[in-house]
Amino acid sequence: MKKLFKINEQDNVYVVKVPLTKGELLEIEGQQIVVPYDLGRGHKLAACDIPKGEQVFKFGLPIGSATIAIQIGEHVHLHNLKSNYLPTYSKDDRFNQ
């Protein structure tokens, strides 16, 4: 069973379908990826390299911009993606802008 899926063909992220565990091996677009830490369902992994400032697409629509260059297979979340609208409040202060 595939562990990742893309919601819309235009998307540059995959969505995690089944919980992933640290160290697990995955293949994204022919590249081997090592899962860096446990990731729950619904989290996102880059489907290609995303340069800093580029839009991240999910559902075929932009969900924010990359704050740093993101490599294929990397976890895409608060540490490298920011809203184009309101900053996201997190209980983890490292991510509060």
């Binding site: 729950g40 619904g42 629509l61 932009p62 969900i63 924010g64 809203s83 609208y85 996201t88």
Partner: peptide
């Protein structure tokens, strides 16, 4: 965010 959503617009979509 713990559920994997990163931004307000992602949740909206």
């Amino acid at each position: 965010a713990e559920g994997g959503l990163s931004t307000l617009e992602e949740k909206s979509i």
